[in-house]
Design a protein around this nucleic acid. Structure first.
Length: 390
DNA sequence: TAGGCCATCTGGTCCT
DNA sequence: AGGACCAGATGGCCTA
């Protein structure tokens, strides 16, 4: 499937299909904790094959002369990226004759947590060796001899820095791989690139957000029809941190709202908040969107929060009904448009009461929902993901 | 062969 | 002071 097809698919917002494809991809892509780089994951994918060789430690083949006195001279020999790595297809550092491995570093490791054996891998770094050397010298660096010793230590530090950087990048790549595994995407001949992964993740989040809003709008409409109550969801427990979504970047008269929901997908209870757009007609029609179980779960939670009590509390805000309206939904009919409050917080830590109502609701034009400022005023790229996948 | 993507090295800067 | 972070440089691998 090429990028054009991806674009079309994303344009359809058929997340059920995406979810299906996600499952399919999860079966195809390597998830063995090796960053999807093993050769097994390379079936039909060239990148994993290539990167399988990259994952091997360059240090395994680097023959740093720690006795050299000029670190700049060694850099000429060791720079050049993957070129110095072994050409093996294994992910287990087969390049080193002694089988030394710097791989297997967990993504959670930060900094130097790898304890390499300098004895078994003379050309690799013993990450703590320097510190131990320093400790052997009673930590008195000022008394170190200048000249060759410093150059030697510089080389060692450079090697350590290289290893840390390598591990850091590995962790980053592991995170990318984790992201690939949780976002639905269509099957491709190759693995998603980093930029594709980020773009898709962003779009996915935005679409999820829209789905929640759409669902909420429908529910609000239903409640109004049944009881005549004012639609809307109480904004509860909205984070009021100064750097939070509400306080940052949303004009007081903007239609933008903030939604915070428990991330049921990946973060295990973390609270993800996203700034939502007031509708400008770009919102999805929920009836046309099928969602993944996780998304449906989110939606059900959203519905659950729409209680009459919450509606009453919203009414207590004394905001005119039409001013409480955040936006209308282009697909839901005029009777609903002036009663949408696309603010939904499922969880959080700090209540700010009428956060949305104050920060967002006030000043929204009456009955001009579709013409009101949208999130695009805040983020010009907001709508763009819906027009084009990548 | 050009371009895309990537891993790694490297030196500078920021942060604790 | 040392580690994290960042961006530039370099070169390999792959596809069109």
């Amino acid at each position: 499937m090429d990028a054009t097809q991806l674009t079309e698919l994303m344009g359809s917002h058929d997340f059920m299909q995406l979810q299906h494809q996600l499952h399919h991809n999860n079966n195809n892509y390597n998830t063995d904790g090796h960053n999807g780089l093993s050769s097994e994951s390379a079936e039909g994918s060239s990148r994993p094959v290539r990167r399988a060789t990259r994952r091997t430690s360059q240090l395994s083949n680097n023959t740093y002369d720690l006795e050299m006195t000029d670190s700049s001279s060694q850099s000429d020999d060791t720079s050049g990226g993957g070129g110095s790595s072994n050409g093996g297809g294994s992910t287990t550092n087969t390049g080193h004759p002694s089988g030394c491995s710097l791989g297997g570093q967990g993504p959670s490791g930060r900094g130097r947590v790898q304890q390499a054996s300098s004895g078994a891998c003379p050309s690799t770094i013993a990450p703590n060796s320097t510190s131990s050397n320093s400790s052997n010298a009673n930590g008195n660096a000022s008394r170190r001899r200048k000249g060759a010793l410093n150059a030697k230590e510089r080389n060692m530090r450079r090697l350590e820095s290289n290893e840390r950087e390598r591990m850091r990048m590995h962790s980053l790549n592991d995170a990318f791989q984790s992201l690939r595994e949780v976002i639905p995407h269509v099957e491709m001949e190759r693995r998603l690139s980093k930029i594709e992964t980020l773009t898709l993740a962003k779009n996915y989040i935005i679409n999820l957000t829209h789905i929640i809003l759409s669902k909420r709008n429908e529910e609000a409409a239903a409640l109004e029809l049944n009881s005549g109550a004012v639609g809307g969801v109480l904004l509860s427990n909205l984070s009021s941190e100064s750097g939070g979504p509400v306080a940052s970047g949303i004009p007081a008269n903007s239609n933008a709202a903030t939604i915070c929901f428990e991330d049921t997908l990946a973060s295990g209870g973390a609270f993800d908040c996203a700034i939502l757009a007031a509708t400008d007609g770009s919102l999805l029609n929920a009836a046309t969107v099928t969602t993944s179980p996780a998304m449906q779960s989110i939606q059900s939670q959203a519905i659950h929060l729409q209680t009459p009590m919450e509606q009453q509390q919203q009414q207590a805000s004394h905001l005119p009904h039409h001013q409480q309206a955040m936006h209308g939904h282009g697909h839901l009919g005029a009777s609903i448009q002036s009663q949408q409050q696309p603010s939904l917080v499922l969880n959080g830590t700090t209540s700010v009461g009428l956060g949305i109502g104050i920060g967002v609701g006030v000043g929204v034009g009456v009955g001009v929902c579709n013409n009101a400022p949208s999130f695009a005023d805040i983020n010009d790229n907001f709508d763009e993901p819906f027009r084009e996948f990548l």
